[in-house]
Amino acid sequence: MKILVCISKAPDTTSKIAFTDNNTAFDKNGVQFIINPYDEWYALVRGLELKEANGGSVTILNVGGADNDPTIRKALAIGADDAVRINMEPTDALGVAKQIADYAKENAFDMVLCGKETIDYNGSQVGGMVAAFLDQPFVSNASKLDMVGNTATIERDIQGGKEIIEVDTPFVLSAAKGMAEARIPNMRGIMAARTKPLQVVEPSAFENTSEVASYELPPAKGACKMVSADNPAELLELLRNEAKII
């Protein structure tokens, strides 16, 4: 079973969000970068579990510059076999998806796994786009994935509940909570990751279909208005007459 796991680099959840260059660029100063949690905890770990149970390989794919290599090495330390970095600063999801699809087309994977969204751009775009470029079925927001032969049984989130579906390989899946438990790399994994293959591939040509023109921080929150615990009814008065929302 040949599995491709797409990972994105994202600022740690607790990072302070600030912008530079006249609010056109994210301020990376002092920011700790991690593997996007949905890509790591759910897509990568489930991919590794399937490989451990059925044999095969897990390849990591990232689109980014050389400064992403430590993040990619972490994915290798968790247990992936090899990695590919497409050497391009990502600008929009369609461009990233095209690079992923071009690589996946040449290397025939049984499945392409990614997280349901990144915690920085919150797009939920790349998985569906890769599926479209590869002309493969797309299963989004999956919370369980089991394989019997070439057939996957997948639980996916739908409006108001869940659905169990079946699909044959190849397919593209975006992973949500429930797929797997996060793994912490051990020392052996970290040592092994240093020598695992990380191939750098130059991107194919494409044109940006969208780009961030500027960023904006929300207005600072005013002080929290406190209501006495002895008279909670006052809270409802405030919500009705001051905030006017009930």
């Binding site: 600022p11 959840t13 969000i17 912008f19 915690i119 920085d120 751009y121 919150n122 044109e207 940006n208 279909t209 969208s210 780009e211 961030v212 023109a213 500027s214 960023y215 904006e216 921080l217 929300p218």
Partner: peptide
Amino acid sequence: VFSGKAYAHVKIN
């Protein structure tokens, strides 16, 4: 963007 901590103004080309 950034899980609700900021906004982006995105240009579609």
